[in-house]
Design a protein around this nucleic acid. Structure first.
Lengths: 182, 182
DNA sequence: TCTGAAGACTTCAACAGTAAAGTTCGAAGC
DNA sequence: GCTTCGAACTTTACTGTTGAAGTCTTCAGA
């Protein structure tokens, strides 16, 4: 078995079994949680990517729009602040803003009260693409959680935030670069 | 409030509150699950990245080593198969293998029985780095789940696999490119 | 006021990924 | 036995991110 040369990604259960075979010191229960988390995230990003692509933007650009809107009125942030929120280097932020300005999604101006600072704002078009992306995303997310009862959703959210709190405490610094995703 | 210009990433609860403010058609319970998933994954990748960096490799390289080991004896796969398992384009796989061969982590040979095919194998050094990375990762993962009882871990794993099954059914194709992560 | 240091962003060179075109070998049909 | 098609990988050109160096402004002290 498993002899097919063109074999694709193994199923989660196959993967867990392979881990047990190759690395005995592994708690299958832990591995199941961790592997499922990682795979889920990948699939979700693929789904978001398809939706944002329909709007002619990328997930990366959507992230910027989200950060601006979530910052609240007047929907403006500096590149440095944006970079921190998105976990990017300032250099990457500069380039990304360049593109988004060229596409008419955001504006860039100098802060008159402090001419070193730059202020990035969202345009009408940016805002409307954000809204449309949110609409599509919520449909997808609602569908994703379809099989979970309200009570289960609550428990799941609670457990995940407990995990999150634990990593954030151990890793208080801004979350680091995004270079190593998978 | 929220007037600090150097403000960093908002907390999960602040983010949920901002969503409710800016986009009413949002189920906070759903959003909590989704946002926690995404943040958790980011933090986990940062943690893995620090560990693999200690070994002088990247998360990307570790992924390749994992795929080879999990494939089972004789720990060999073609670039195309590897690319499918990792969700990369074949071109990216070629480049990544180039680097890993140069670093002595894997070998690349032509398949004698079919000279179009290439076979990637793991070296001793690759295998030992994989093992060391696994050891560090399991310590981290065990710590991550520290606050969950055995029963909770089981329930969490079960719910996550249910979600995963749902996306995989909706998205049966190999999972798509990894270009749009966040 | 001038000067030096710090902060905020940008520029530059190098690296990693993608898409599309190119190469090479194997297999199926005439 | 050619020839054509298709599969598997590589090459090329381009996009996006990083780390480090560079620029410009502000602010504090002499």
């Amino acid at each position: 078995m498993a002899d097919t040369p063109g074999a694709s990604e193994p199923s989660l259960d196959e993967q867990i079994a392979a881990y047990q075979r190759e690395f005995q010191d592994l708690d299958p229960q832990v591995e199941k949680v961790v592997s499922a988390l990682s795979r889920l995230n990948r699939r979700m990003n693929v789904a978001y990517g398809r939706q944002t692509a329909e709007l002619g933007i990328s997930n990366a650009e959507w992230e910027v729009l989200k950060a601006l809107v979530l910052a609240g009125a007047p929907y403006r942030l500096g590149p440095g602040d944006l970079a921190k929120r998105l976990g990017l280097t300032p250099a990457a932020m500069t380039h990304r803003i360049d593109r988004m300005v060229a596409e008419g999604l955001v504006t860039r101006e100098r802060d008159e009260s402090n001419r070193v600072r730059v202020i990035v704002g969202i345009t009408e078009e940016g805002r409307s693409k954000w809204l449309e992306a949110m609409r599509m995303a919520t449909v997808f997310e609602e569908d994703l959680l379809q099989d979970l009862s309200g009570e289960e959703r609550g428990r799941l959210g609670e457990m995940l935030t407990r995990l999150l709190r634990r990593v954030e405490d151990a890793q208080p610094d801004a979350g680091g670069r995004l270079s190593d995703l998978d």
